[in-house]
Design a binder for these strands. Structure first.
Lengths: 190, 190
DNA sequence: CTCTCGCGGCTAACGCCGTTAGCCTCTATT
DNA sequence: AATAGAGGCTAACGGCGTTAGCCGCGAGAG
C-alpha cells in the first residue's frame, strides 16, 4: 500500500469518526507519526485529499445504485448510504469545486440507473434526484422535528412519483410529450 | 442604527458580494474602519453574526412564502429567492448548528404555508419541502449539466405532486389515510 | 566497492484565521 | 468637577494550510 493510500485511509477514518473539523493536515500527520509538511511529499494539498475521499465515496454509491431495479429500492439505497456515511455525504455534497478532479465516469453511473427507472424522462429523473438529495440533506441536518416519521415521508415521496408516472403513461398513449431522452443525463451523486 | 446592525449589514454585503471566504472578522473590521478585536464590543463572535444573517434571510423568505396560495407559486418563490441570494441560502442551509439562536417563530411560517397547501398532509408537505430544497441545492452547486432545462424540471416536479394529490383525493373519498395533521409541522427554511 | 541521486523525512517560517487580555480616551451622567 | 462605561486600540495566542530549504539513507550505476 502506497503512502498516499495510507494518507487517504487515515483521512477517511478521521473524517468519519471525528468530523470535518478534525481533518487537518497536522492532525493527519500526527496520526501517521510524521510532521505535517511531509504530507506534501505524497499529496498536493488538502483539496486533493478531499477529492480522493469523494472519489471513493461516489464509486461505492454508484455501484450500489447501478444494481437497483426499482425506484423504491434506489431511494432506499441512496438514503441508507447517506445515513451510514454522513460526513462523506456532506463532503461530497458541500464541495462541488473539487469535482473537477473526479473521473467523469463515476458520476454518470447512478444517473444512468435513475434514468433507466424513469424510462428516459429527464425532468422526472432530475426531480427525483433532487428530492432524494433534499430529503437526505434535511434529515442529516436535523431539520425535521424529532418525532417525524421519515420512513413515511420517503414512502410518500416515492409513491407520488410512481403513481404520477403511471398516470402520465396512461394519458400519453400515442404521441408522447417532450420527455424523450436527451443528453447523456445529469451527473449523479451528492 | 446601532453599531451592531452596521456590522451585520456589512457582513451581509460582504457575504453576498464576495462569498463566505471573505467574511472574516478582520475584513469586516477593515470595512468598518476599525480593528478586528473592536468587533467583540458589539458582537459575541462570528457565529452570532452568521446567525443574525440567517435570521434576516429566513424572515424575508418566510414572509414571501406565507403569501402564496398555490404550490407552483410557492416553489417558484422558494427557488427564486435561493437563486437571488445564493450565499445566504447556503449559509442558512449549511450551518444548522446556529439554529439554536434563531427565534423559533420564523421558521414555522413557511412550514405552515406549505402545510396549508397540502391540506395538512405532513408526509407530502415534507416530501415537497425536501424536493424544493434538493433541487435548489443541486442547481446552486452546478450539479446539473449545462444545458439542462431546470424550469422544466421544476414544472414536472410540482406537477407530479399536484396530480398525485388530486389522484389521492379522488381515491380517498370517505375514510382518509393516516395523513392527518400531527405535530405543528416541520421547521421551515434551508 | 564506491558514488550519486532522489525519496521521504525534518525544522523554521509565512500569512491567514478567530479570539482574549489589557490599556486608553472620550463622552455623558451624577 | 468627578466618575463610569462605551468603544476604540495594540499585542498576543494557538490553530490553520502551505512553502522553503536541509539532510540521512538506501538503491542503482559505474
Amino acid at each position: 500500500m502506497s503512502r498516499r493510500e495510507q494518507i487517504i485511509d487515515v483521512a477517511q477514518r478521521l473524517l468519519e469518526a471525528e468530523g470535518p473539523e478534525s481533518l487537518t493536515m497536522r492532525r493527519l500527520a500526527d496520526e501517521l507519526g510524521i510532521q505535517a509538511p511531509s504530507l506534501y511529499k505524497h499529496v498536493s494539498g488538502k483539496p486533493e485529499i478531499e477529492a480522493a475521499l469523494q472519489q471513493r465515496a461516489l464509486r461505492r454509491l454508484a455501484e450500489a445504485l447501478a444494481r437497483t431495479s426499482d425506484l423504491a429500492t434506489l431511494a432506499a439505497v441512496y438514503r441508507r448510504w447517506a445515513l451510514a456515511h454522513p460526513r462523506l455525504y456532506e463532503l461530497s455534497t458541500r464541495q462541488p469545486l473539487a469535482r473537477d478532479r473526479l473521473e467523469p465516469g463515476v458520476e454518470t453511473e447512478a444517473a444512468a440507473a435513475l434514468l433507466r427507472l424513469t424510462a428516459g424522462d429527464l425532468p422526472t429523473a432530475r426531480a427525483i434526484w433532487g428530492m432524494a438529495h433534499g430529503l437526505v440533506d434535511l434529515e442529516l441536518a436535523g431539520r425535521f422535528p424529532p418525532g417525524a416519521d421519515l420512513d413515511a415521508v420517503w414512502e410518500r415521496a416515492v409513491a407520488t412519483f410512481a403513481t404520477a408516472s403511471a398516470t402520465r403513461a396512461r394519458h400519453a398513449s400515442g404521441v408522447g410529450g417532450r420527455t424523450g431522452p436527451g443528453a447523456p443525463g445529469g451527473r449523479a451523486s451528492g
